[in-house]
Design a protein around this nucleic acid. Structure first.
Lengths: 353, 353
DNA sequence: CCGTCCGAATGAAACGTGTCAACTTTTTCG
DNA sequence: CGAAAAAGTTGACACGTTTCATTCGGACGG
C-alpha cells in the first residue's frame, strides 16, 4: 500500500459523511457513541492517518513551535531545549528544533523554514550582533521570544540571565582569591553573551588597583577552541601568563583544562579557571570546574510560557504584553578556582585547603 | 498585518495568473525574464511567504525527515543528530528531532506525529525491547532506518555498531590488565545496547578461569544513575567490591567517577572504569575515561544516506534494497583503566606508570 | 500566405481537511 | 398526541498551492 486513505474513504466505509468523521476526530463528544465507535473501528481497520498539512491549511494554524539555538551540541542548550519541550508537550504541541551553529545564514534559513511552516511561535537564541530578520515573522502574526538574550530595543519578550552580572561574579571571585593577571577566553565577540560576560569581568578587574585583564578571542565556544586557547596561554612565559582564566563557557573551560594539562600546567595551582553555564560535566571535569550557574531548564520552560501567553493574547485579539524575565545566576565554586598556598586570597580567610 | 498574502493576491498585484506565480517560485526558467522580475518584485513588496502546508498538500510530499533518539541530552546522540542534520541539509531537507527519553509512549507519540506530518523518512534509535509500531509508517510508504540498533528481523535498513564486540573489547581490556571482579553498570535492560554490551562482557569474563561479573542495573543511562550506582558499590566491603567497572555509557561512567570520589574511592587504583561512546567529555573527565569509541557523527550521516537511497528507490518505483551497515568500534585507553602497581596486568608488560 | 512549431501564460481542477448552516431524527414535556 | 427543543448528521465550500491541458501570439519555413 502506498498512501493513507482519506477522510472521505473512511466516511464511505463507515457509512457516514466526511463531516461526521471530522467530528469524531476533533469533537468526539458531539457525535453519538455508536457512530463514534463505528468510525473509530473503521479508522483503525483502514489504518487512516490524518494529514496534518490539510488540517493546517484549512484550520490556518499549526501546532508547532520553532526553537532556534546557537549550538545544539552544547549541553547548556540541550537543557534549555528540554525545558521548552516539556512545556510545549504539556499543551499538546511539538517543537521544531533548529541549530544555527552560530551562522547567520543558517539562522536565516531556519527562520524562513519556520515561516513557511507557519509555526505558532518562535523561540530564538539569536546568534548575530543585531537582531535577526524577524520582521517577516511578526508580519505573519507569529510571536517571537528571545531566549538567553535581552533585546535592547525591547521589541520582543525575552528570558535571559544578566551576563554582565555573571561576568562580575566570576571575576570578583578570582580577584578576591588573589588573582591579578586574569584572562578572558571566549568568542566570537559577535555573540552578546560573550561580550556581556567580558564586560562584567572588565568592570571588576578595572576597579582594582593593579589588576589586568587579558583577552583571548576564540572562533567559537567549543572545547576545541578552549584547547587552542590553552596552547596560546602555555606559550606565554611565566611572568606574562595569567594566573586565572575566566572562560565564557564551560566547553571552553573544559578545553582549557585538558589543553593546559597537556602543557604540564596545573589547575588551579598554575592557572585557576572559572567557567560559565555549570553544565552537568563541569562538576565531573578533570578538575571540578567552578562555574556561573544558570537555571538552564527553567530558562527554556519560562520562554515557552511567555510564548504561550503571547499566542493566547493574539488569539483573543487582546493586546500583546511584552515581558522581560531575568533570572539570577550564581557562582558555584569548585576546585578549579580554589585558592592555593602560593597566592593568599585577600578576602578569603582560609588560604589553604 | 496578520497573515501573508496568498499567491492569488501576488498574481493580481503583478497582473499575471496564479500559475505563473507558482512557476516563478518553482520553475523560474520557464517564465520570461521580464515577468519573473516583476513577480519577484511584487513578492518582496507584499512580503509573500509560501504556505508550506498547501504546497505539501498538493505536492503530496514534505521535505522533512524525522529523527527519534533515546536521549537528546546525551552528547552521543547530539553528535549523531549533527551527522544527520549535515546530510539532510545538503539535500535541502529539514530534520524534525524527537526525544523519546527512553519512554515507549513518547516514542509512539512522536512516530504518530511524523506520520501526520507525512515526513519523507524516519531515522529511529528504538527504545524498547521489540520494534516500535512502525507498520503504519511503512503502510504510508515512509521508509525507516534504524540508528544504533541492528534489527534482528532485518525488516529495515540500519546503521549500527557491534555492541557485543564493544562489550568484549572493554571487558578484555579489563581482564588483561589483571581484573577479576568486574562490574557491569547500566540499564534499563530493555535497551538492546545495554544488553549487548553486557553480553560481550559476560562472554569474556565467563571465558576466564576465575573471573566474575557483577551486574548493577540502573534505571537510565545518565550521570545521576551512575552516581547512584557508585553509592551501591561503595557500600560493598573491600573483598566484595569489584576492582573494575564497565559502564554501559559514558554518562554512567562519569557519574560513577564523581560518585566514587565522593566516597573516597580512587580511580583507577581502587576501581578502574571503562565507559562507552567516547563522548567529548570522556577525555576531559576528572580521571580521563577509557571508553569504547563509536563513530558518532558518521553514524548519523550514514543513516541519512541510507534513508536517501531508499527514498530515491521508492520514488523511481524501483525495489527497495535494505542494507545493514556496521561500523567498527575501538577502545580508547586512558587513565581510568590504567594498570596500577597493586594489580599486575597479565598481558601488559609495564605494570607501573 | 498558410501551416507549424515554439515559448509563454492561463485557468480550472485537484489535494484532504475543518466549518457551519441546514436538515433529519430523537427526546422532552405540556 | 403533538409541538418544540435537543441531538445527531449531512454536504458543500474554502483553505493556498501545484499541475497540466489549453490558449495565445509570434517566428519560421515552405
Amino acid at each position: 500500500m502506498r498512501s493513507s486513505p482519506s477522510i472521505k474513504q473512511v466516511a464511505a466505509a463507515a457509512g457516514v459523511s466526511v463531516g461526521t468523521v471530522s467530528n469524531v476526530l476533533n469533537k468526539p463528544d458531539v457525535v453519538a457513541e455508536a457512530t463514534r465507535l463505528r468510525v473509530n473501528a473503521v479508522i483503525a481497520q483502514l489504518g487512516f492517518v490524518r494529514n496534518e498539512s490539510a488540517r493546517q491549511l484549512r484550520a490556518g494554524s499549526s501546532r508547532a513551535v520553532g526553537l532556534l539555538v546557537i549550538d545544539a551540541a552544547n549541553p547548556f542548550f540541550a537543557d534549555v531545549a528540554r525545558g521548552v519541550e516539556d512545556a510545549v508537550q504539556q499543551v499538546g504541541g511539538v517543537v521544531l528544533l533548529g541549530n544555527s551553529a552560530g551562522d547567520g545564514e543558517r539562522e536565516r534559513r531556519y527562520l524562513e523554514l519556520f515561516e513557511q511552516q507557519r509555526v505558532r511561535g518562535v523561540l530564538i537564541a539569536p546568534t548575530g550582533d543585531q537582531n535577526p530578520p524577524l520582521e517577516s515573522l511578526t508580519r505573519l502574526g507569529i510571536p517571537v521570544v528571545f531566549v538567553d538574550r535581552y533585546p535592547e530595543d525591547l521589541a520582543y519578550s525575552s528570558v535571559s540571565v544578566d551576563d554582565v552580572a555573571g561576568g562580575r561574579l566570576a571575576a570578583s571571585h578570582l580577584v578576591e582569591t588573589g588573582h591579578r593577571r586574569i584572562a578572558f577566553v571566549g568568542g566570537p565577540s559577535s555573540l552578546r553573551q560573550v561580550r556581556d560576560r567580558k564586560q562584567g569581568a572588565e568592570e571588576v578587574v578595572g576597579a582594582t588597583q593593579d589588576g589586568i585583564l587579558l583577552v583571548i578571542s576564540t572562533p567559537a565556544l567549543t572545547t576545541a577552541a578552549g584547547r587552542m586557547a590553552a596552547d596560546e596561554i602555555a606559550t606565554l612565559d611565566d611572568r606574562q601568563r595569567p594566573t586565572a582564566v575566566f572562560a565564557a563557557n564551560d566547553l571552553i573551560a573544559i578545553g582549557l583544562l585538558s589543553g593546559l594539562a597537556a602543557h604540564g600546567l596545573r589547575v588551579p595551582e598554575d592557572v585557576a579557571i572559572v567557567g560559565y553555564d555549570d553544565i552537568e560535566f563541569a562538576e565531573a571535569a578533570a578538575v571540578p570546574l567552578s562555574s556561573v550557574r544558570q537555571p538552564r531548564i527553567e530558562l527554556g520552560r519560562c520562554a515557552a510560557e511567555l510564548l504561550f501567553t503571547q499566542i493566547r493574547a493574539l488569539e483573543a485579539h487582546r493586546p500583546v504584553q511584552l515581558e522581560q524575565v531575568r533570572f539570577d545566576c550564581n557562582l558555584v565554586v569548585r576546585r578549579s578556582s580554589a585558592p592555593t598556598a602560593g597566592r593568599a586570597g585577600a578576602a578569603s580567610p582560609a588560604t589553604r585547603l
